[in-house]
Design a binder for these strands. Structure first.
Length: 269
DNA sequence: ATGGTCGCGTAGCGA
């Protein structure tokens, strides 16, 4: 089975590109971030027409995540396990932002726990938004420990908004003050790996230089000024079954593209 | 140091 993550940066602007990507690459499970839509107005019908089941966790205008499963390939609708991590947004009285959706994905070859996440950006640093990011990462670590304890095949993936190492960014100097690569952000990410989770995308090149995001500004795509912030973490039950991993880089170069490229993993399960 | 570009929703915030 193939499990993918794609920060689409707005479903209203991205629907044609999303449908195209689904049809061309046909992931068994697709995790979407930044749908920027409420559940009621998410265009599920057009995605279902391709044979996908759709589960959304959205909010108005910002954030929002979704999980799709390939009904045509014999996958059941995503079975919801948990939405949200119970962390209040950084603004007073704002409530919780829509950033986490955990499901069981069951297909012909078995069940995988899939946690789709959109981690807070955390800029500007320092400040309340950065503190919110760190609190969110602490809650994520707690939740991942609970998943670990279930000893099920599990994949935790999405836009982590963390550049893990210096060789995961086009220029350390250009990004030095960004929340995405502060020592606290990196430390929290490193603790997840220290807990035993495998960074699947890192295996593409252990020396770095793999990008999943290119800014819209300053000709970043044309200059290949990118960085790696979309990650796929595997429980031990999945790490042994990893068969292939990749970045659909060409999709970043298309008309009206997202600023992220899709990232995927093939499991022998 | 600044400005550079998008999306949502239709001003200004978030990235």
């Amino acid at each position: 089975m193939k499990i993918a993550t794609f920060n689409i940066n707005g479903i209203k602007a991205r629907l044609p590109r999303l449908l195209e990507w689904l049809a061309e690459t046909r992931p068994s499970v697709a995790c979407l971030q930044e749908i920027k839509s409420q559940d009621e107005t998410f265009p599920g019908n057009e995605i279902e027409a391709l044979g996908y089941h759709v589960l959304t966790h959205g909010q108005k205008a910002f954030n929002g995540v979704a999980v799709l499963t390939d009904g045509k390939a014999g996958f059941e609708p995503p079975k919801e396990i948990q939405r949200g991590l119970g962390i209040e947004g950084p603004k007073e009285g704002e409530g919780e932002q829509a950033r986490y959706l955990e499901v069981d994905a069951t297909g012909p070859d078995g069940t995988v726990r899939v946690a789709c996440l959109y981690l807070p950006n955390g800029n500007p640093h320092p400040g309340p938004k950065f503190n919110y990011k760190l609190a969110w990462m602490a809650a994520l670590r707690t939740r991942m420990a609970a998943i670990w304890a279930e000893e099920v095949p599990a994949v935790v993936l999405g836009d982590f908004n963390v550049i893990p190492e210096d060789d995961d960014v086009f220029s350390v100097r250009a990004m030095a003050n960004d929340a995405l690569m502060q020592p606290e952000s990196r430390g929290a990410y490193a603790r997840l790996l220290g807990d035993g989770w495998t960074d699947a995308v890192r295996t593409l090149n252990p020396r770095g230089g793999v990008w999943t995001y290119w800014d819209y500004q300053a000709g970043a795509w044309q200059r290949d000024h990118g960085f790696r912030i979309d990650h796929i973490l595997l429980s031990p039950e999945c790490a042994d079954r990893m068969r292939a991993v990749g970045v659909d880089k060409a999709h970043r170069g298309r008309e009206k593209a997202s600023d992220h490229a899709p990232v995927w993993l093939e499991l022998s399960l």
